[in-house]
Amino acid sequence: MANGCIIALMVIVVVLNVFAAAAGLALFALAIWVAVDPYKLYPIAAISGKDDIFAAAWIAIFTGFAYFCTAIFGIYATLKKKRSLILTYLILMFIIFIFECASCITAVTNRDYLVGNSNLVKSQMLMYYADKSDRGMQITNTWNKVMLDAQCCGTDSPLDWVEYNSTFMQMYGTSYPWPLSCCQRQSSFDPADPTGCKLGQNSAIFSKGCFTYIQSMLNRYTWSVSWYGFSVQMFVFFLLLIAIVYFIFLE
């Protein structure tokens, strides 16, 4: 009877580790996607000093791959029925579990600081856009890409460039009230109506703000790292409980 229970537990632990390995690989892939920053929003987070979402992604890259490797080792240890191997497996999984908890918590708590309201993003835009420093060039390139990709202008609206003092206004305010990236484009990506854009005609300028787009993309990063990470953690916690029972039953 006892031997039958051990065999049943062994099969369950092996199957759960197969799923854990797959979940670890998926976490690894998602974390790489966030770290690569396909929407190129890292400069906005970095300027504020709150780039913890990307730090969490690097931790998740490690933990995802570590879960995969350790789960494979767990399958080997389970089939060997050696308490020393199972104990090593449990210790390794517990260490990885702690690191992944840190990754999830870091990502979800940092999100609110960046996307809680538009004032932080707006102040960065006004200060650094068109500035000739390294930070200024990074922010300028980021905002040009965001405004063209999302077909938006400014943080809340194009009026951000007019109602607030900014580096762009000081340098180009007499020529253009807002950047040319705010202008609607032809298929060749040239401004469709530069004069109308300069005058603020709705048919020639992107009239919506970019904050909703930035908020949405940063939320995607956060959910990928934190909420999927939390779901993996819940599964691993259940796996560890079963593995501990299996360890206890082994002679």
Score class of each variant (00 low, 15 high):
Tyr67Trp: 11
Ser157Cys: 11
Glu163Gly: 00
Cys153Tyr: 02
Asn117Ala: 12
Phe62Ala: 09
Met93Lys: 03
Ser103Met: 04
Leu41Ile: 03
Asn144Ile: 01
Lys40Ile: 02
Asp149Lys: 13
Leu27Phe: 03
Ile61Trp: 01
Phe97His: 14
Leu120Gln: 07
Pro43Phe: 00
Met147Gly: 05
Arg83Glu: 06
Ser123Val: 05
Ile91Pro: 08
Met171Leu: 15
Phe73His: 11
Pro43His: 06
Arg135Leu: 08
Cys69Val: 15
Asp160Val: 02
Asn144Thr: 04
Pro158Arg: 03
Thr174Val: 02
Asn141Trp: 05
Ile32His: 12
Phe65Met: 15
Ala150Glu: 08
Leu41Val: 06
Tyr39Arg: 06
Trp58Asp: 05
Tyr164Lys: 07
Ile86Val: 15
Trp161Ser: 03
Val162Gly: 06
Asp149Thr: 14
Leu159His: 12
Asn110Thr: 08
Gly154Arg: 05
Asp112Leu: 08
Ala60Ser: 15
Met147Gln: 15
Arg135Lys: 14
Tyr129Ile: 00
Val115Arg: 07
Val121Glu: 00
Lys80Phe: 00
Tyr39Gln: 07
Val115Ala: 14
Asn144Asp: 15
Gly49Arg: 10
Ser123Trp: 03
Ala46Asp: 13
Phe97Arg: 07
Ser157Arg: 09
Ala150Ile: 00
Ser103Pro: 11
Ser133Lys: 12
Ala107Lys: 01
Asp112Ser: 15
Ala107His: 03
Leu92Pro: 08
Lys82Tyr: 04
Ala130Val: 06
Ile61Tyr: 02
Tyr172Glu: 11
Tyr89Phe: 15
Ala46Leu: 04
Ala130Tyr: 12
Asp156Ile: 01
Arg135Tyr: 12
Trp143Cys: 01
Val36Asn: 13
Lys81Ser: 14
Cys104Ala: 13
Tyr42Asn: 09
Gly173Met: 04
Gly173Trp: 03
Gly116Met: 05
Leu90Cys: 13
Lys122Trp: 00
Lys80Gln: 09
Ile72Phe: 07
Phe65Gln: 07
Thr106Gln: 05
Phe73Lys: 12
Ile86Leu: 13
Phe168Met: 09
Ala60Glu: 03
Lys50Ile: 02
Phe62Pro: 03
Val146Lys: 02
Ile86His: 01
Gly154Val: 00
Gly136Trp: 03
